[in-house]
Every structure is written in structure tokens, then in C-alpha cells.
Design a protein around this nucleic acid. Sequence first.
DNA 1: TCATTAAATTGTT
DNA 2: AACAATTTAATGA
Length: 239
Amino acid sequence: MATVNNESSLHQRRRPLTDQELDAIPWIHLLEVRERERAQDDLRIADASPGDYVCRIGRPVTYWFGVVDGLLKMSTDNAQGQTMTFTGVPPGGWFGEGTALKRETYRYNIQALRKSRVAGLHVDTFHWLLDHSIGFNRFVMNQLNERLGQFIAAREIDRLTNPDIRVARSLAALFNPVLYPGVGELLQITQQELAYLVGLSRQRVNQALAHLAAQGAIRIEYGGLRVLNLQALRNQIFI
DNA sequence: TCATTAAATTGTT
DNA sequence: AACAATTTAATGA
């Protein structure tokens, strides 16, 4: 893993969003004019380099975060001091609403796997939107529901022994159009990065991807993967 | 714009 | 883990 940079660097280089970046935020379009103005005023974006922390366990919640570009990983340290990776967060993904709702401290670490652009909405504005916007409430509720499904699926994935299926299911999660609308057809992820997320060697991931490509579920591209059949990824069974 | 070189990523053992 | 092959990015004329 890359060296750990101090996380303040992420907060020093914040700036307002460009129109293009705003457009990439899925929930912004659900707001009324007045709500949208308030959200836009508060939204900030920052560049994160590989290894940078977006948030750390135990820190008080200050922002609700979303990935505009790049790839983050969500992880925690267990009692044995080992790092356990929960999931990757590709473009379009917003996270931390659970802790933001309760104004608690972050319960996981979020680190950039690659150079990324991360947007942040202050937790006070997050609450204001919850109090004023029906569209925003729908988005958050839908998000929570969809993620619950993902965590159940993740438990299943953990119990799977077949690496090919693990890779397939993990990929299907990253291609989730509800949680990660910014991904689209092409997920920008290297085989090394995917290996980190799934917990397999790059070689084994390479082999699994070749297998999935042979089935026509995906197409392997340089620096990314194109989904051809999402259902095939989800329903992956022993061959 | 094109050719050359370096860096990143993939494929294979 | 190591190495070769391939693809992209960077450089400079």
C-alpha cells in the first residue's frame, strides 16, 4: 500500500465545484431551486492522492462525502491490528450518511486507492436538506436500502471460496447503478486495485477476469473493465 | 503533429 | 515474485 500522507492536505485544497462536477452529483438534480442553491454554496471538492485519508475512524463527522472521480476503499482495523477492507467506492458513490445522521464519529477509514476527486457536503447542510427536501430524503432512504442489500451480499461473498465467483460478485457490487451512478459501463480500476479490494493476488484476479471475459460478462480493457452482462456477474455460478 | 522515451498495466510462468 | 509484452502518457522537435 502507498505511504500514509497526512490527511490535512486533503482539506487544504478545497475549492467550489465546476458545473461539470456538479452535474456528476446524482442527488443535486432532485432538489428544488432554493435547496439546490444552498447545497451548491456549501459543496466543496478536493483532490486525493493514493493513500490519502478522506476520513478516519474516531474523527467527528464533519462532511458527507461523495466520489466524483477515482476510487476509494472503505476499511477498518480489527482487534489483531490487521486492516480489513469492506468495499471500494467508485464514482457517483456517497457514503457516511449513517454516521452523519447520528452526528457520531466515523466508523471506518476511507482512503484513496488512486488519484481521486472527492466532494464534501457539511453535516449541517446535510441535516438542513433532510429537514427541507423530500427529494433528498428519498435519495438517502433509497441509498440506505440499497447499501443494506450490498452488505448482505458482501457477507455472502466472504463465505464464498471460489475466487472466480468472489471477483464476479465484487465487480457486480461496484457496477451497482443505484449506489454508483458515475460508473456507467466502464469501471476504471486496475487489476491490482481490484485485487486489493477482493483480497486476492493480482494473478488470480487476472485469471478470474479472463474467465469472466470468456463468458461474455465483461470486457477487459487497459486500466478498466467494461460490463457487458451485469446479471451474469451477479448470478455467477460454478462452471 | 509526429517520433521517441518513460511509466503504467496486463499477461504469463 | 519475476519477467516480457502491451498500452498509455510525457517529452521535445
